[in-house]
Design a protein around this nucleic acid. Structure first.
Lengths: 139, 139
DNA sequence: TTCCTTGCAAATCGTTTGCATAATG
DNA sequence: CATTATGCAAACGATTTGCAAGGAA
């Protein structure tokens, strides 16, 4: 139960904190492995799950079938590009009122919500205007 | 390309329309099999995916790692009980303004959003008040 | 020395797919 | 007859887990 220190976990956490995008377990693995060649995918998954359960990081299920991870645990929203699949932080005003709206007339207790916005990101808008054709990442 | 009629697909669709909850592929399989003993899980998945792609039904990814399906394709929101895992329809006023809020200051184009509300459903609130202890369904 | 953590590989789980056969139009 | 759909089983991809060995407190 008592958590012990681990160099692998530190590297994973450090890597995640240095990224503004939202890497998948595999991306974390590929990158941490550069500095820590012996680390295993299992260890990456174990630590990501551990960190997420402790609330140190967030697990994002954006709908592409793969979990993404975010070291920024402050409340914020994400945009997912249906063209390139990138997951982007949104800076927007608080919309917590939607919970009150949802709770009106509902007999359970609403404790939270998860919202993902979808569409075409700025980069893909430009590209498609120039005739390119990236592939969709969403299932 | 041209769709042909299939008794299995009809049964799947009929079953889904007769449910107010939001069954998983396996639940659909188990139930349709009662009337159609030879149907295979693969056929259920194939048809659910087909129907979802045609827009006849909706695929819900509520975060428990399993896809749920909903024959009600009208715009509405869902509540997921973190206690029992049940997925419940919410009747609430439109919150599409959150897309405008999200889009302000974002350089991409927001085309849609997915929102799930979490908490304790009415039934579980009563149960926990009486000292019971159901298990969590969310990962 | 206790027991948490790792690496490795095998296992699991939900879902998809290839193929030969059956059903539809 | 041309094609789509099915059943079955094998294949998949992401994630989890058992186990023996390694490392932290």
């Amino acid at each position: 139960m008592a958590l012990k220190h681990s160099a692998q976990r530190d590297k994973i956490m450090a890597f995640l904190m240095g990224r503004k995008d939202h890497p998948t377990a595999d991306v974390v693995y590929m990158n941490v492995r550069k500095e820590y060649p012996n680390i295993s995918l299992g260890t990456v998954y174990r630590n990501l799950t551990l960190l997420a359960n402790m609330g140190e990081i967030m697990r994002l299920r954006v709908g592409d079938g793969v979990d993404h991870f975010d070291a920024d645990t402050s409340p914020h929203y994400h945009f997912v590009c249906t063209e390139c699949g990138s997951v982007i932080d949104l800076e927007m005003e608080n919309i917590d009122t939607i919970q009150d709206i949802a709770g009106a007339g509902f007999d359970g207790k609403i404790a939270g919500h998860v919202t993902y916005f979808y569409g075409i990101c700025g980069d893909c808008s430009k590209e498609s205007a120039s005739g390119q054709k990236p592939e969709t990442a969403l299932q």
